[in-house]
Design a protein around this nucleic acid. Structure first.
Lengths: 198, 198, 198, 198
DNA sequence: GATGAATGAGTTTTCATTCAT
DNA sequence: CATGAATGAAAACTCATTCAT
């Protein structure tokens, strides 16, 4: 019998072994040689598990997101107010823990903008939809608890979009000096309109 | 002196001669050979006028923005309400006329995200600041005309960011089916809060 | 002993399992991976039975030739004249039934011409000699039956060579529009000289 | 002004600089690196003049054929009889001078048989047609001079094909011990039928 | 100042072969 | 015996950059 390898596990191993490489460089700037060397396998082995560099990126993100979600869920459970939850939800764009994931996210958006493939767009759509629903759930809950007005549900899209827009601006320009502050200011402003007046 | 003017003119000529190339391809995918051939000059000549491909992109955008601004100013002058002006201001992200400029803009953001250089960040900062001020001016005017509340000035950042965020989402995911509609909905929602109640 | 028989059987099984692959692709274009997968065995197993891809080709051809010979013998028995027999003998180069074998034959000649090995040359020699003798036998018989002149025996080589030359020309150039016609014309021409004048 | 190079001359120079390489190896076995090194230019330079290895082969053959034709014409002019001319014409397949050209020819046929491209087939067709016409002209002349019968014209195809078939057999098998002898025997046999009986 | 021929480092990709299980 | 994971050498090809004219 030949060596039976858990293909999925091996994919994960290779991906994680070179995750730092992907944090520090954009996919375009990484060569298969470098990736293989870093992962401690031969170039051919990379091709046994991945069809292209993007797939490795997908794998890394998938693994990291699993952990990220657990932590996020935990952090959310510690927040009692809807506003608090939304702020925690939005801290992905600036907090220290998600620095790495954020780097990869930048890479994803960059690829989507410059040379989009169906795969990457689908991948992005899946995740965007997932997090959007999640946030919608939080807002819905806030409505049910009478914290915020029913119309608030229509502002979820705007909050998400503004978060993302502020993040992009903070990365691609020098205009945003303190992203954390800007995001929280904008959430405060939105909640001004969303919160039930007593 | 005269020579310097000539040099500037030649830069512009080269840049404009290959602008279509830049609309249709991302900078990363264009080779100097292709650019030179399209511009009808030798490869060496490109190096006499530009240090890298990005600089050509800068030149094209600069020229195009000049025209774009004139048209925008004209369109704005035809709008009487502040809301109308903001909508016209935001239509850059979806209107037909700015399709080309938008393609270049995507390229800029992509570069900023994946391998940012000081030059491109400064370039982006300049333009972002310029348009931001412009929009702020419009809102300021609306406040002075008593159309909208003084606090509205603090929402300019959010409006801009949400526009940008929606645009990025429309490009990098399949989530936004109709960008024009989403942008206008979100502007309407914001103006609900900004407009003075009579 | 029994084991050796088994080994031979297994070789044949593997070879036949992937014969279609060899019809459709030239040996050079086939990878061991593809062959192994098609044969339904592991890559390592191929190496247990064959030293190289050519050997698999030999095996396939050997098996196919056995059947081909039976059919040919049967077809020849149905022909009464020597000319008829020679034509049937030569139809290998254009008939529909031998299409596959012909594809393999092309591959053999190609290998012989570009990077000949002792093995392939011996293999080719064996078969060429075998068929040459066969044809010689037919001509001999025709002489004995007084159908053709005794000198005809010296033209066997020419007939064979011309058949082969026409085939090669039909494959490597666009000069031969209808190979069947050309081969039959040339055989007719030769028989003009070979047939006993009554 | 940049260096103006006679592109055609440079192609020829590169091709000739590595012709020995092509005599000794089949195209498939040659790498661009080796070719470039032998020609004394960089790898990139090869690509500036040729799209693939076959094109280099074409170039070499074209140059060599030019010389070959001159020599052949000269040799033919020294022959007075049609039979002599045909023999001289056919000596390409075995004479010492054309050894190199013959090696390339083998390569051509091998490629045509294993992985034919339109280009190579057209190239082969052109040359085959050219030499075929040439030989036809010689036979025609013989007919006009009353040396051979008018029907001889129909045997040109057979003579060519048999020459080629014998050559292929001599290369791909051990059956032909002395190609020169076989070719001349077969030409003698054909002329037996073609020559006018006095 | 303009040119474009030459370059070679660097990249992706393939695949025969090995060998631990 | 059979397997198939791992490998790395080798190949094709690209392209920014230089520099002689």
């Amino acid at each position: 019998m030949a060596i039976i390898v858990d293909k999925e596990q091996k994919k994960r191993d290779i991906a994680l072994a070179c995750k730092d490489l992907f944090f520090q460089n954009s996919v375009k700037d990484l060569s298969i040689s470098t990736i293989a060397a870093t992962a401690g396998v031969g170039k051919g082995t990379i091709y046994n598990y991945f069809n292209n560099k993007e797939e490795i990126l997908f794998e890394i993100v998938n693994v990291l997101l699993r952990d990220h979600d657990i932590v996020k869920r935990e952090k959310l459970s510690r927040e009692s107010t809807t506003k608090g939850k939304i702020k925690v939800f939005s801290d992905f764009f600036y907090n220290e823990e998600d620095l790495e994931l954020r780097e990869l996210y930048k890479d994803f958006v960059a690829i989507s903008l410059s040379s989009p493939s169906k795969e990457i767009k689908d991948f992005q759509t899946n995740h965007a939809t997932y997090y959007h629903s999640w946030m919608k759930g939080i807002v819905q809950e806030g409505i049910e608890k009478n914290e915020i007005t029913p119309e608030s549900i229509n502002l979820v899209q705007t909050i998400c979009a503004a978060n993302e827009g502020l993040f992009i601006a903070s990365v691609s320009t020098n205009r945003i000096e303190n992203l954390e502050r800007e995001i929280n200011l904008h959430i405060d402003a939105m909640f001004n309109f969303m919160e039930r007046k007593k």
